[in-house]
Design a protein around this nucleic acid. Structure first.
Lengths: 341, 341
DNA sequence: CAAATTTGTGTAATCGATTCAACTATGGAA
DNA sequence: TTCCATAGTTGAATCGATTACACAAATTTG
């Protein structure tokens, strides 16, 4: 594999000159430049970015750490980030924690050791300490997620509260008073610790309080997997006082929940209203089309990327971005049947 | 930021010794090791992988190049690869061509310059030349995709032909003779150039020939976007001699096609049988559940990863893997109505 | 025409690790 | 006691680029 020295020898110039050609430095005679380029061509030379990065003390790459790559919304965020990274011709180090805190910190350490220029970090649990560590190493960090704002780190907050309240309000205004909410988490207690689920739970309570409606805590359940979510939902729907509306707190669960609904022979929206967090073409194609709380993850990814690069490039600016979600009303929610459950 | 020299000074040993501690070399007195570790701790030292990689002439990372990250199957493949990469504690350089050949070669060049240890490459168009170039630079390449086997490069071939033939045969045996097929591509000609779509088209023809059924080429259409796919489908379904079955050649198009079907008020499966390539929870949750040709992409990703690492580690073995797809019969296909269209 | 400036190029130090040869204790065998 | 093998360590070269500095040649200026 040819090195810069090989090229220099071949073109009968010094390595410094070759380097200048590679970096489009203006102070090179065009005749010299041509012969260097010719040598590069002939030797099929490919500059070694590892060496360059060592010297320059930057890597031309950012790290993206997601909690779980099977979640399509993370993929969409990735796609947005990749777009922006491409424009800044930066590479992307992809890290998937696969749900484990252990993996998460291992990946963060690795990103630090690789001396990436920045990290987009969607934390699983508490993150302050680890993120601080990166910061101290001079690596810019942007926190992504649906958690409550706060903390000193640059972050992108998904402003979902209003849309969430609007969603529950929508159901209440249709006449529902028994609304089930399925969240992701080990327990209601874990949900209360913060994050997206907490936010959705708070909005649920807020909308009820606002309408003077009591909340039946037994209608709020958590699950860690699609299967568990489906079985919890089935249990709820089998109750004598079954809910008249079901809210899927995470898009990932929605198809399994819909399947569970069909298995107990309930029609949507006549017998049960269904509302889902997260939008997709499938939610739109479903019969009836699903009413959803939607967040534009592609845009979110792009803005995350822009924020990170503005930080690494030392451009000061707003370091806490907001992205509003919205309620998309389709046909899966309707007034409960007069006779009620 | 502390370097290995700082650590050496602090622990009052040479840099060589620190290096040996870092790499768990046995020839270090345990007393020395302890004091080095202490110094590392105190200085909050993080080894610089860029420097290490330069010296070692390997990067401890592989590149994964996908044509488009918005496709969920690519995501699933990524997840599989990430698992395996984690086990080999290798990093992943993520590259998204976003559908453009130009991006594709730019990314390949970058991966080469970064001196990744290997590349999983899902090419958009013809790839032989570019892949060869990487090979010559000593970078192992594994081709992923649903293209016809052949070529000298290690690859993972999705063996979809049998399942595809079974799918069309299934429709024919139900009594269908006018089966529409929607493929992704600019034109039927581009489809014929190869790749997954070619394979599906061939299977379609094969099953027809086998049953002695003529193929109406006007029922095979291509589209580049969901919107185009939906409008092409709408046109087909508006014809007097409309097809009695519709095959979505790519999962990505399916929801839009289903939407188009509903818009012309055709019931599935009574008025129209629907069969889709690619499976998902949504396809299962749809009413009626969709009959699909399914490929296990998670497993595919894992096997791709294993193949690549066996190559980079110099372990010889089968370099052309196969992964079989299967037909999953659900409820979206039924005999055409007696009266027929 | 000499001095001053500009332009282009070569030389060598440097980034932060690894690793090999050389050297020094340390203990055991002759 | 002397010699040898061995474990532990040091020092320096090395990976492949960038870049500050020095310097020669070419050009402008007074």
């Amino acid at each position: 594999m040819a090195t810069i020295d090989d090229v220099a020898r071949r073109a009968e110039v010094s390595t410094g000159t070759v380097s200048r050609v590679l970096n489009n430095h203006p102070a090179v005679r065009s005749l010299t430049r041509r012969s260097v380029l010719a040598a590069i061509e002939e030797l099929n030379y490919s500059p070694n970015l590892v060496a360059r990065n060592l010297r320059r003390a930057r890597s031309g790459a950012i790290g993206v750490l997601v909690p779980n790559a099977t979640n399509p919304s993370n993929l969409t965020i990735m796609h947005g980030i990749a777009r922006v990274a491409g424009r800044h011709n930066s590479g992307i180090f992809f890290c998937d924690s696969d749900g484990s805190l252990e993996n998460e910190s291992a990946h963060l350490r690795q990103l630090c050791e690789r001396r990436v220029d920045g990290v987009v970090f969607q934390p699983i649990g508490s993150y302050e300490k680890q993120a601080k560590l990166l910061q101290e190493s001079g690596i810019r960090v942007v926190i992504a997620g649906l958690r409550t704002p706060g903390g000193m780190l640059p972050q992108m907050v998904v402003d979902e509260f209003d849309a969430s309240v609007a969603a529950i309000r929508h159901l209440i205004s249709l006449g529902h008073s028994r609304i089930a909410l399925i969240l992701r988490g080990f327990s209601t207690i874990s949900v209360l610790k913060g994050g997206a689920m907490r936010n959705r739970f708070d909005a649920y309570n807020h909308a009820h309080a606002e309408a003077g409606l009591p909340v039946d805590q037994s209608l709020v359940v958590t699950a860690v997997s699609e299967e568990e979510a489906a079985s919890r939902a089935a249990t709820l729907l089998a109750r004598a006082d079954r809910p008249t509306a079901l809210v899927s707190g995470i898009h990932y669960f929605s198809p399994s929940l819909l399947l569970a609904v069909r298995q107990v022979n309930l029609r949507i929206p006549e017998d049960l209203s269904f509302l889902s967090y997260g939008d997709s073409r499938w939610a739109e194609a479903f019969d009836p089309p699903l009413t959803v709380v939607r967040t534009d993850y592609e845009l979110m990814g792009q803005r995350l990327g822009e924020l990170l690069f503005s930080l690494t490039d030392g451009i000061a600016g707003e370091t806490s971005l907001h992205q509003r979600s919205e309620l998309i009303v389709r046909a899966s929610c309707a007034p409960p049947l007069a006779g009620g459950a």
